[in-house]
């Protein structure tokens, strides 16, 4: 998955605003994304160290600020007194990131699609139950996102970060909704296949490859 890459780019983009300590950077990231992808501070510093190695960020100052002291108390390491800023190369990397669409050629590894594909081809697996359990679980997540959307800061965005988070929530809603629809679709197709043996039917005696008449996603 590209998550590691996008977090690196996102951190770099936030650093364009001005120098920051690791803890500040993490807080800024989470404020915009609503703690949807929580970062641990170790991950933040590892990423910063790599960005520095690649010449995309540089160290600006040591110690002094409140944030740095708190960071040092919590983690007790020298590098946490350090604040970072984007270099010229870092800035052009950010521009390139915004200018380039996220590639879709390599489908994200989707555990659910893989699980169903395998389940459909193996004897003795109750695919219907897998689908129903997943639908309930996905529906429950969708209920959570919807609750977050209609209450709290995403419901009445007052600043750009609130709006950003609300958009992240929308993305989660669309994803979960698409997943439920896909599950409904799989269920309907499996039922139809069971009613018309021979047409790409799921025969558990012979776990042959099912012939898909249309791409599943």
């Amino acid at each position: 998955m590209g998550a590691g890459m996008s977090i690196r780019q996102a951190m770099l983009a936030i650093l364009e605003r001005g120098p920051m300590y690791g803890y500040q950077l993490r807080a800024e990231f989470e404020q915009r994304t609503g703690e949807t992808w929580p970062l641990n501070i170790g991950q933040v510093y590892t990423t910063l160290t790599r960005l520095e190695r690649d010449g995309l960020v540089e160290v600006v100052g040591h110690g002094g600020a409140d944030e740095g002291d708190r960071a040092a108390d919590q983690a007790g390491s020298d590098r946490q007194h350090v604040s970072y800023r984007a270099t010229e190369a870092g800035r052009s990397e950010v521009s390139a990131w915004f200018a380039t669409p996220v590639p879709r050629t390599q489908p994200a590894r989707d555990e659910l699609a893989i699980k169903l594909a395998i389940a459909v081809t193996l004897p003795g697996v109750d695919v219907g139950t897998i689908i129903q359990r997943q639908r309930s679980a996905t529906m429950a997540s969708l209920q959570d996102y919807t609750r977050l959307k209609r209450t709290g800061r995403a419901a009445t965005p007052e600043e750009p970060a609130d709006l950003a988070w609300s958009l992240v929530l929308d993305s989660l809603v669309f994803d979960a909704e698409a997943e439920v629809r896909w599950l409904d679709h799989c269920e309907a197709r499996l039922r139809r296949a069971a009613l018309e043996p021979g047409r790409g039917a799921v025969r558990h005696e012979s776990p042959a490859v099912t012939t898909a008449e249309e791409p599943v996603r």
């Binding site: 309930s136 529906m139 429950a140 969708l142 979960a176 909704e177």
Partner: peptide, 25 residues
């Protein structure tokens, strides 16, 4: 029929062939 609308509910009940097969919450 819409999952995004059902998500406003406290509980979602799934019917199949006249039977409640599952529910969230």
């Amino acid at each position: 029929h819409e999952a995004r609308h059902a998500a406003w509910a406290d509980r979602v009940v799934f019917l199949r062939d006249g039977v409640v097969v599952d529910e969230t919450g």
